[in-house]
Amino acid sequence: MKQTDSAATGNLDRRQFLVSFIIATAAALSSRSFLAAAEPVDTSPASADWQSVLETMFPHDNVDRTLYGVPSDALVSAAEKDAGTRQLLEAGWQSLSQAAGGDWSSATGEARSRAIATIVGTPLFVLLRQTTVFTFYGNPKVWEVFGYEGDAWPFGGYLGKELVTVDWLPDPPAPAEGT
């Protein structure tokens, strides 16, 4: 089989892959005809705007802020490259800003959370969530902070190494026969 290159393993230009992923996701969501025709806007949301949205959706105090920049940069790049994605994101940004009281950047954290609650399940929510899942929660730098080691092949697995590190519970009793 010809192996598919994966962003997760860095074989392909990661950024290019992420942008394509976002565009494809946006296209699939738009084809579900959720997308209302958007009025043209003067300014498109910048990466910092999306970063602020993603930090509201997926707050982690102990993560380097720049790691949120990976998905937010990719969202902006995808919007620059693809009209359908831009339309979805611009319309979404408008509705989020409105739901937050008219201006996202000056809204309180509470108002921002309330605004996010209004988009749960919409194509915008799904696009933002999938982008974050893939590029943020799929990022080994994030795993490191949360205590997930990922690939166990390089060190040959946990057998005889750290298979049982839970020392705060007793060992299980010997199982009864036949269970």
């Binding site: 929660y137 205590g147 997930y148």
Partner: peptide
């Protein structure tokens, strides 16, 4: 499961602190 699957599928609509405090305490 690992963090990717935990984040992607266990709570498909998960967001906010209710969701992230589980993910960020993955090793717990």
């Amino acid at each position: 499961v690992g963090i990717p699957f935990l984040a992607a599928v266990i709570k498909p609509d998960g967001w906010g602190r209710e969701f992230t405090r589980f993910v960020e305490h993955y090793d717990h």
